[in-house]
Design a protein around this nucleic acid. Structure first.
Lengths: 97, 97
DNA sequence: CTTATATTTGCCAATATTTGTCAAGACAAT
DNA sequence: ATTGTCTTGACAAATATTGGCAAATATAAG
């Protein structure tokens, strides 16, 4: 499972001596959800990212990037053609801009 | 919307003078679904790919790769951090193998 | 060891998204 | 005008995601 985002959140949270419960409360979700997010069991909703970034005084863009990376990873996880697909999309993206 | 897969399907289908209706029937879905898939309005279910590959005498791996690329594209479409996220996942993938 | 607090886990209901069907419409060929 | 193909939108059914709860498991302190 994808955990880039979760690992970073945990890092930010613990460095500030913040408890799961406190972060959860500010995000207005149950503690268990944050626990799962940090361990990569769950993905946060995209709309929650700006808020969690603010709560943790983190860079919104950085967290969004990590979150996106997790979404991408979930798509290709365990796929034999993962590498080719990534290349294909990267190429397509370059053409667009 | 993502269309790499759809464009290829249409290419394969028309080259064989196959009608939407015929392909749909063999795939056991309504014609409209194939129409939407080919235009990128819909994604096929992953499980349907081996079957459609066989129907069209196409390379299963190739179609799966294109399908994956579409899924990836749907994730990052319109995202400012798309490029960074792609790089991040590509890097992670390399480490894994 | 016991208590107190923090975290993790599994399960459920509510919600949201995806999937497929149907019917109507657009378009071309005749 | 009729026929055949393809497209589109509305809808219901199936599936997946989300969040909350409560029990289980750690972790820490006395």
């Amino acid at each position: 499972m994808a955990t880039q985002f979760g690992v970073r959140i945990r890092e930010l949270r613990t460095k500030q001596n913040m408890l799961l419960r406190q972060l959860a409360s500010k995000l207005d979700v149950d503690t268990s959800i944050i626990s799962k997010v940090e361990r990569g069991d769950r993905q946060l909703k995209k709309e929650q990212i700006p808020l969690i970034a603010e709560i943790l005084s983190a860079d919104k863009e950085e967290l969004l990037m990590l979150w996106l990376a997790d979404q991408l990873y979930n798509v290709i996880e365990g796929e034999p053609m993962a590498d080719e697909a990534l290349k294909s999309v990267t190429k397509k993206l370059k053409k667009e801009k």
